[in-house]
Design a protein around this nucleic acid. Structure first.
Length: 200
DNA sequence: AACATGATGATCT
DNA sequence: GATCATCATGTTC
């Protein structure tokens, strides 16, 4: 059963990148394959800001990070640790390099395909962590620069459901500007990644 | 040399 | 199940 899902309009996305990171908790990520639609509820995000040393756009625009400088709602996809793809949503106006890392999602539809893409039967581990999420949704560098506010193979949407509270913590896996409270997560949701102490 | 990670195995409870 | 240490991997600076 495929439900009609309307993409989020760019105007619905907060212009402030930190607010965008919070806004995206509970929203849906939809991925259309040739024979299936994959849907997950976003349960964990991190904001990366201007003047933030952990942000890939901290120094200057490069070939890799230029999608971060696009108007909010575009994908920035890069490879991490040589193995994993990371999906980010650009924030702010055109020319400003900020974004939101999508760190985890609760699988809602297409889970059998996700199991194949991830090589595991464990529902909880399908998209818990940014590298796993990208694999479960078959996202690679080919989506870099894609507009996530248009119907297409990958877009942001919503179903009106809300999460049971949103928590804030420091970001995971970084060393520079590591103290900033820029990670957002759905409270009491078992599809959130990271150590227990950050998910209280 | 650093890095926005994940799988695995050890050692607890 | 929680937590921790270890390390494979290749792109970027």
């Amino acid at each position: 059963m495929t439900v009609a899902l309307r993409p989020l309009a760019r105007g619905e996305l907060p212009e402030d990148t930190t607010e965008l990171a919070r806004f995206l908790i509970g929203k849906l990520l939809a991925r259309d394959l040739a024979d299936a639609r994959l849907v997950g509820r976003i349960v964990e995000t991190e904001a990366y800001l201007t003047g933030d040393a952990a942000c890939h756009a901290y120094r200057r625009m490069t070939e890799r990070n230029r999608s971060l400088f696009r108007e909010r709602g575009h994908a920035y996809v890069y490879r991490s640790y040589g193995l994993f793809w990371m999906l980010n949503v650009s924030g702010g106006p055109e020319g400003v390099g900020t974004g939101v890392l999508i760190r985890a999602a609760e699988p809602l539809a297409g889970t059998e395909h996700m199991k194949q893409l991830r090589g595991t039967e464990l529902i909880r581990d399908l998209a818990r962590g940014p590298g796993r999420l990208a694999a479960a949704f078959a996202i690679d560098r080919g989506f870099d620069g894609a507009d996530l506010c248009r119907e297409g193979p990958l877009f942001l949407t919503a179903d009106g459901h809300d999460v049971d509270g949103i928590g804030v913590s420091t970001r995971i896996g970084i060393t520079r500007d590591a103290h900033l409270p820029l990670r957002f997560y759905a409270k009491r949701n078992r599809f959130v990644s990271g150590p227990t102490r950050l998910n209280a």
